[in-house]
């Protein structure tokens, strides 16, 4: 029995990293040869595209711009909302409010991302039937739905960061005659900033990689650079999905792999930064305490 467990554990622990390595190796093998300026800009001179907004036809540039716009908009909506909700939940809510809020946030965190997209889609259907017959899916709608998707991460990391600030700091604030609101605003929030920032970065990574939400709310294959808040746009994850299904030339396929590598670097990098910040948070209050 013990031997079997040991054998099984070894088997699983060899298999899982092997799968991960296979995946990475395959991605590098197919993706790296495609890395070049042409991958991003096609036939357009890069400087023209970046500085003067010259249209790029068969490069990743419009998709990159779309993803950046999408992520910026989504975080602009979700970050203030999420941090404020987290602060309220951790510091001001009555026990009943706290229970209700944590229930809703848990539920929201569990909702499959495609349902956020479906929600956005339904919103447009409703708008069309009522006030705005011309309403259509687009960048802002996607950003709003993505904001819903990442909101739970922000709320719970904010709450956690505030709760991990040592009690002594609160006492010190109270001793100085600060009101509870001042203690939160002047002492606790600055002290918890690292942890909160880690949550923001995780949210950015999640918003950058999600495909299901934008699939239903306005992403298209060939929109060019995003031009308006309500217009269609391109995005990296959708670009990869689209090319995987509809590629016509080997060059397009190579582009899909190269784009996947770009996306993996982005999400992996963001993830590493978030981990570092979290490690910092965990060690920060442990030093210099008399325990």
């Amino acid at each position: 029995m013990e031997r079997m467990l040991r054998l099984f554990a070894w088997g699983a622990s060899v298999l899982v990293p092997a799968v991960l390595l296979t995946l990475l190796a395959f991605l590098l093998w197919r993706g790296v040869p495609g890395w070049s300026l042409a991958l991003f800009f096609g036939d357009t001179p890069p400087l023209d595209a970046v500085l003067r907004g010259a249209p790029v036809f068969d490069g990743l540039w419009p998709a990159c711009l779309g993803t950046v716009a999408l992520v910026l908009l989504a975080t602009a909506i979700a970050v203030p909302l999420g941090i404020a909700s987290g602060v309220y939940q951790a510091e001001f809510a009555s026990p009943r409010q706290r229970a209700a809020l944590s229930f809703c946030v848990d539920l929201l965190a569990g909702i499959p991302s495609i349902l956020m997209g479906l929600f956005g889609f339904a919103l447009i259907l409703l708008l069309r039937k009522t006030v705005a017959p011309a309403a259509n899916t687009g960048l802002l709608l996607s950003a709003g739905c993505l904001a819903l998707l990442v909101l739970p991460y922000l709320i719970s990391t904010t709450r956690l960061a505030l709760e991990s600030v040592p009690h002594e700091l609160r006492l010190a604030g109270a001793c100085l005659g600060l009101s509870h609101g001042q203690v939160v605003g002047r002492i606790l929030l600055p002290a918890a900033l690292h942890g909160i920032f880690g949550g923001v970065i995780l949210a950015v990574g999640r918003a950058a990689e999600d495909t299901a939400v934008i699939l239903l709310t306005g992403v298209v294959a060939n929109a060019g650079a995003p031009s308006s808040l309500f217009g269609k746009y391109e995005a990296l994850p959708f670009h990869i999905y689209y090319l995987a299904a509809e590629y016509q030339t080997p060059a397009q396929l190579a582009q899909a792999f190269a784009a996947a590598l770009v996306l993996l670097c982005i999400t992996g990098g963001l993830f590493a930064v978030a981990r570092l910040l979290r490690a910092h948070l965990e060690t920060r209050w442990k030093t210099g305490r008399s325990q």
Partner: peptide
């Protein structure tokens, strides 16, 4: 005075809770 406006925070929390509803 450096205090956070409580009503604003409450509004944000309410919006987050209502999202799932």
């Amino acid at each position: 005075d450096g205090a956070l406006p409580r009503s604003l925070l409450f509004a944000a929390a309410a919006v987050s809770a209502l999202a799932v509803v």
